[in-house]
Amino acid sequence: MRFKSAADLRVGERGVIRELSLDELPVKLLEMGCLPGTELEVKHVAPFNGPIYFRMADYHLAIRRELARLILLEDSVEDVA
């Protein structure tokens, strides 16, 4: 079974990080607070399916879709939009 990843969220949706693909994910992202238990919310998506603009805990950052796919989320996702 495939878990929902941060790349599957639509604008306005939130999710909580469940686990990370540590082999591929740069440690820098972890150091910036992207850790299991952290809440994410998609704020915007760049043109042509570009990077995703997240609110991660207390701040905002943008990462590319490929990277967001490595961030797996808890099943329950509340829809705020």
């Binding site: 992202l29 603009y53 701040y59 950052l61 590319r64 490929e66």
Partner: peptide, 11 residues
């Protein structure tokens, strides 16, 4: 190597 794009969006 794969390229990473991690950019903070400051207020």
């Amino acid at each position: 190597t794969a390229s990473h794009f991690i950019v903070e969006m400051p207020a």
